[in-house]
Amino acid sequence: MLNRRHFLTGTAAVAATGALAACAKTNNTTSASSTGGAAKTLTLGFSQVGSESGWRAANTQSVKDAAAAAGINLKFSDAEQKQENQIAAIRSYIQQKVDVISFSPVVVTGWDTVLQEAKAAKIPVILTDRSVDVSDPSLYVTLIGSDFEAEGERAAHLMEHVLQGHTGPVNLAQLEGTTGSAPAIDRTKGFAKVMAASDPTWKIVVTQTGNFTRDGGKQVMAAFLQSHPEINALFAQNDDMALGAIQAIEAAGKKPGVDIKIVSCDGVHDGFVAMTQGKINAIAECNPLLGPQLMDAAKQVAAGKTDLPKWIKTKESDFTQDQAAAALPTRKY
């Protein structure tokens, strides 16, 4: 039924689509031409994970803006959630002899070979947002990113703050992020650690992954409300799951933020809107705007500074309902 010509047409079409997509995704943002000409412009090759969320979009924008402001020549590429794309991007940066390579690793393992190549070419590597698991820690200079475990702990302390004056048992539900992802693992760990030391009548009665999406948060919460009607507090590991859960809680005829206290992580714009409406009680921010810190580190590394801390933590804050209205207009993501 299938003849060769048609198969070739199909293959060519797929290849063309792939090529188009690749073209669209790789663009060089030559941000600032060197003005004086005395100092050589620093070139930074940056490989982003993908464009999976508003958080990530803000992260990308921050890196691009900060590069423009710092007069750094940024070569940006999007790995579209695939490690092989990211490795290819890093190899191409090595060939182009950029001054510094930076990337947000898609996954934790499998980086030894390509990072050895970068080291052999004497190009320093800075990780952003997520860490890697390598045999030799000298393969990268530093990691600029959030401390997810601390975020879980901060969320737990916010929960304690929200529940101040509450009498009777607290039955917590938890919506976890994508199973196996670093933020999901570490936020669960941090939250559980603080909760274990907290009031013994406070229990996490049910926990399940909502895949960091609104749809997931809504479906899981709807099922929780059926099987555990006693739930009166919720920790959602990101705002989107909290927003989905809010809809499920409202459909069950309960008032989010009142009948069920809600604390979440991230601090995206829609999360803040829900907080101003009193539907989310508190948010532990996870800041994607690490561009300026990355450019600072890149400049220091290029200047030959080798004693940077192994982990530069991003600056983050906690927000409660009374701060929500004031903070909302300044939210960039």
Partner: peptide, 16 residues
Amino acid sequence: GRGVQPIVATLILMVA
């Protein structure tokens, strides 16, 4: 119309 194998033809739109 073009006789492309269904799995290939729809894969194009799945990605794009």
